[in-house]
Design a protein around this nucleic acid. Structure first.
Lengths: 192, 192
DNA sequence: TATCCTAATTGATTTAGGTCAATACCATTG
DNA sequence: CAATGGTATTGACCTAAATCAATTAGGATA
């Protein structure tokens, strides 16, 4: 039994001890050193990951050769190549540890088995995805209605734990601006 | 029994006739005239809507007074204020018919009842939200890596049915650019 | 057909942010 | 402590798109 994920489940759904036990029983522990990769493009995606400790980033390289950060993840976040996992295909993305990280992995087939035996976990993931969906929509609208400074402040506000664990050039990348621009914004914020 | 939504369900999950019957039994038919509103800010959100016929847009006004289109919906799309529905709160958005529209509505409590009686519908909505989540992520990345012309072409490609049913200024708004800019892009595309 | 009215286009100008290049910072390691 | 390598900052310049303003096009209605 892994306390962090057990708490996370209990925070989102009401369920029975045996169901939680079943869920825990299919998880595997994984460690990733800072700078190492949990996933690279081309790999067939069999797992999703729950972060027990540490910080990671998910990104991909577009066909102009530019890197785009899709997501950061810290403690109690799920991370993975959602698209490839869900459609059972090969990954297009990198997932790299920004700090030494401990993770729990769940296998696709195990998850299908759990959905069959304990359908309440359909609800668990439906709820998580719904929250992620709503958060993501906010990211789209934020990019449209706000300038760099406003978005940076919003980012620091939304992810207070992440801000000082991630280099500025990664934050800039996530916000879709250049590190130079973010640097200027930060300078202006210090003065005012 | 409503054939379009029944087909939509069957296209996404395997389930029994009674379950589908149950689902159909809680739906209500709604009509909205072109230019009329299905939802306005401040309304408590009790329903999500499935489009049987017609075309609608969902948008909101930010605190600078600017309008932002969140989503278009045509036949066989679900639309609503997902955030407010899911958290059972008041809406922040407008949903307006671009063409006369026929919809099916599902009530929040009915949906909870269905989740309890036919948990396979947790799966149905989990799958829909997962697809929407992935599509939305593409929208974020597309906005970061592509210029207006590329995004416009992508839009026409992804929504071939929508493109000529929606005014250009709405498309521009959805893409997060001005109508003037989109007009110039379109002109350049006609020449080349 | 004339008259609205809205949408689309075009032109002139401004601006936020990008690009390129140089320099400063700072933690690690030999 | 010096040297190294990654990160952040600063400066000069450029560009895509926004803004503001005017004009044109195209449907609907009387």
């Amino acid at each position: 039994m892994y306390p962090s994920i057990t708490k996370h489940i209990r925070d989102h759904i009401h369920t029975t001890a045996p169901a939680i036990h079943l869920f825990n029983s299919v998880l595997n522990e994984i460690s990733v050193k800072k700078g190492a990769f949990l996933l690279k493009p081309g790999t067939f995606v069999k797992h999703e990951y729950f972060v027990v400790k540490g910080c990671l980033k998910a990104y991909y390289i577009d066909n102009k050769g530019h890197r785009h950060i899709i997501q950061f993840a810290v403690e109690n976040w799920w991370i993975g190549d959602f698209d490839a996992f869900y459609n059972q295909g090969s990954s297009n993305i990198y997932i790299e540890a920004i700090e030494d990280a401990q993770l729990l992995s769940i296998n696709y087939n195990s998850l299908q088995k759990i959905y069959a035996e304990a359908p309440v976990f359909e609800r668990y993931f439906r709820i998580l995805i719904t929250s992620a969906f709503i958060a993501q929509r906010k990211r789209i609208l934020s990019a449209q209605e706000k300038n760099t400074q406003e978005r940076y402040l919003e980012f620091c506000n939304s992810y207070p734990n992440i801000e000082d664990r991630v280099p500025n050039y990664d934050i800039a990348n996530y916000l879709g601006v250049t590190p130079e621009n973010l640097s200027r914004v930060r300078k202006k914020l210090n003065l005012s």
